[in-house]
């Protein structure tokens, strides 16, 4: 467990850098992950992915498959990886404040 800071707000994270408590998500967290992930600028498409992930997670308690993410955003797989170079599991889920997915990831 560790604490990170962005714009004066502290966040508790696990050792993989995922938010420990989903409820502590704020826009400052998004900004923190953006810098960590080396994404130059966030656009509406990044936000759409984040919103879809959060909506799905709040309903299902788990991250959606990338297929579901693609269906709900209308983005192709390649485009999702262009938006989040570390991928939907490690990059996008982290930005959306979801816990680290379990499994071989």
């Amino acid at each position: 467990m560790a604490t990170v800071e962005m714009n004066g707000t502290s966040f508790e994270v696990d050792e993989d850098g995922f938010l420990l408590d989903y409820k502590s998500f704020t826009n400052d967290w998004v900004e923190y992950v953006r810098q960590q992930e080396g994404i130059d600028e966030l656009n509406d498409e990044h936000w759409k992915v984040v919103n879809v992930l959060q909506d799905y997670y709040e309903k299902n308690g788990i991250a959606p498959m990338v297929r579901v993410l693609s269906k709900l955003t209308k983005y192709k797989l390649k485009h999702i990886y262009e938006l989040f170079p570390s991928g939907p599991g490690k990059g996008a889920c982290k930005m959306a404040g979801l816990p680290k997915p379990t499994g071989c990831v």
């Binding site: 498959m65 797989l77 990886y81 499994g103 071989c104």
Partner: peptide, 13 residues
Amino acid sequence: IGPEPKFRAQLIY
């Protein structure tokens, strides 16, 4: 393995 369809579908492609 599970992670391929879950997140890394390009490997199946």
